[in-house]
Design a binder for these strands. Structure first.
Lengths: 231, 231
DNA sequence: TATAATGATTGATATTTATCAACAGGCTGT
DNA sequence: ACAGCCTGTTGATAAATATCAATCATTATA
């Protein structure tokens, strides 16, 4: 099921280099390259499970993954992860456990890199460390926005937020094709699948967007923004 | 209102030194000492407001503060902060803005240290940086637990979580005296003040705890734990 | 092709939670 | 002592949301 291609290509040729590893020199990239291996996941496959040990960090190089907390009967999706970004759980600096699960939404390719190598680079390269801190901070800010959306907005506002997230941050276009299920939509907005579907239907009836299967288009951005803001 | 005592004492004599600054040498502590000033806040006073620039980080040396997001009509308390801990918002590594507000719950003393000094120390001292990353990670894990509690548990489970938080993490004893209001209790558990009061009443009627004004005692820890876990 | 399995949708209903209104008790300042 | 103003408390009601059950659509499988 999982196809491991150890050292299939080189980090120096990878577009990770210019994005998340822009502060690393070629010696440092070699260090990563030598400790990494590449894995392909099919849509739906689990990348790692909450609670398991976490010996490496995961860089998504193609496809789309989700990270989610398995809660009390239902899941909460914390974020979707697309290329080129890495999944670096807080457990690495605490107890080497995963605090959330990750799975492939679309077919995915990931590079797994030994966490100790990553931590070594953080210690030795202040620019890399600072960039990492910035990413962690952005993640944290996103989590704050999410927690406010989920706890203080009603369902229409939450769905509006998720639609903007998908359109602006994940698929990055406006008529876009959903690769996530309705259940995922519900798990992103903290409600039941049925409620999520109903809100979509209302938006459709009010002419705010069109939904046809997995095709979605926002027709009235301004009104959707207003729904997001009034909660 | 705010009483500034610049350089009232020395960082080398402060118990911050052994806790959050344990990895700093005396030269580095001097650096912090020289850029810091101490402020006293009365209960209820605002330490900083969400959205304002954030030129320093705040170390709470006495009293109790809360950090909270001002959302849509109501507040969400992210955490209570007691000595010796620091409030270090994610904005420092992003755009130098505060992403949440902080205010004194009890009378508070805080030391404000220039953020650039902090960032300099992070760059130059890998042990300090790693300890900081560990603290950020723990914070992040706490946020995840909180987001799950708030989005997936019903009111009794959420109140149970808050009571454990207060008893185990903040006041650190079992018959404890609440220094926060019922509204704060509600803002910690993401519900209306009336609902929070009602749940407390139910717990009292079931013999799980006693509440008399601000005195609270957990009588049946096991049952309260169960309520927390079943949601 | 027929058939099962899965995901999406809809309606009816029950549950959870917020809101509104009223009131009590304890402070404050006069 | 009294009025005014908080915070806390309670009850009645309304709104938001989940759950359950049934149906439809689509895809996978024998």
């Amino acid at each position: 099921m999982i196809n491991k291609n150890h050292q299939a290509s080189n980090c120096n040729d990878c577009n990770c280099k210019t994005q998340i590893f822009k502060n690393l020199g070629s010696t440092e990239l070699d260090l990563i390259n030598n400790s990494r291996f590449q894995v392909d996941y099919k849509g739906g496959e689990i990348i790692f499970k909450q609670g398991t040990p976490s010996p490496y960090f995961v860089c998504i190089t193609s496809g789309l993954a989700k990270i989610y907390i398995e809660g009390y009967g239902k899941n909460l999706i914390l974020a979707l992860v697309k290329p080129v970004d890495y999944i670096f759980g807080p457990g690495i600096y605490v107890d080497n456990r995963h605090y959330y699960s990750a799975s492939a939404v679309e077919d995915c390719t990931a590079c797994l890199v030994d966490a100790s190598v990553f931590k070594k680079l953080i210690r030795e390269n202040p620019d890399f460390a600072e960039d990492f801190l910035k990413r962690v901070s952005l993640q944290s800010i996103f989590n704050f926005e999410q927690i406010v959306s989920l706890t203080q907005k009603q369902m229409p506002g939450r769905i509006a937020d998720v639609i903007f997230y998908l359109s602006e941050k994940i698929y990055c276009k406006n008529p876009f094709e959903l690769s996530i299920s309705r259940q995922d939509l519900a798990d992103l907005s903290g409600m039941s699948k049925e409620s999520a579907i109903r809100i979509l239907k209302e938006f459709k009836e009010e002419g705010i967007l069109t939904v046809a299967g997995n095709k979605m288009e926002i027709l009235n951005v301004k009104q959707l923004r207003q729904i997001s803001e009034t909660g």
